[in-house]
Amino acid sequence: MELTALLEKKKETIVNEWFEQVIQTYAPDTAMFYQGQKDAFANPVGSTTRHALTRLFNLLLKHNENESPAAIIDPLIRIRAVQNFTPTQAAGFVFFLKPIVRNLYKKNQKKIHFDELLALESRIDMLALTGFDVFMACREKIYSMKTNVERDKIYKAFARAGLIKEVPADEPDPKFI
């Protein structure tokens, strides 16, 4: 359990480093703002990112195992899914944690327990896949909204041209008679 104990002890340092690296995926001026502004309503991206990463790390430490990983990662992925990112960049931040943990482990332990490290990394892999599921759900939502806009436009154009005859709610649909 040495790795878990180390992660518990260094939790704040790890999450800060993780946050720092995620924020550096933005342009320098933007990163400075996302990092510096502490008001959650003036800076929803920075505050959501920090909050989500903290909860995700707790999840990896098995503190909140009864919570759904998808629900925890959702707010962060939901933001990155509409920003200027490729899918790799939007969802790949989960992997940033691996080198952070490895370096910390190497620095603090003489002997590396690979079984523990690999178990943690497998959990990180699963979390990344969950993140990708959420990313896809967000993208599908965006596509369906775009489709609805177009469908609505066509429907309204037809309706204005008098080409739509709705079946009144209290009458049966003729095709079923």
């Binding site: 996302y34 003036a42 800076n43 929803p44 991206v45 933001i79 920003q83 200027n84």
Partner: peptide, 17 residues
């Protein structure tokens, strides 16, 4: 004004400041 624009806050694109 830089960090007051919703498009900058949301997109993170500095040219939206």
């Amino acid at each position: 004004c830089a960090d007051k624009c919703h498009f900058f806050i949301g997109t993170g694109d500095p040219k939206n400041m």
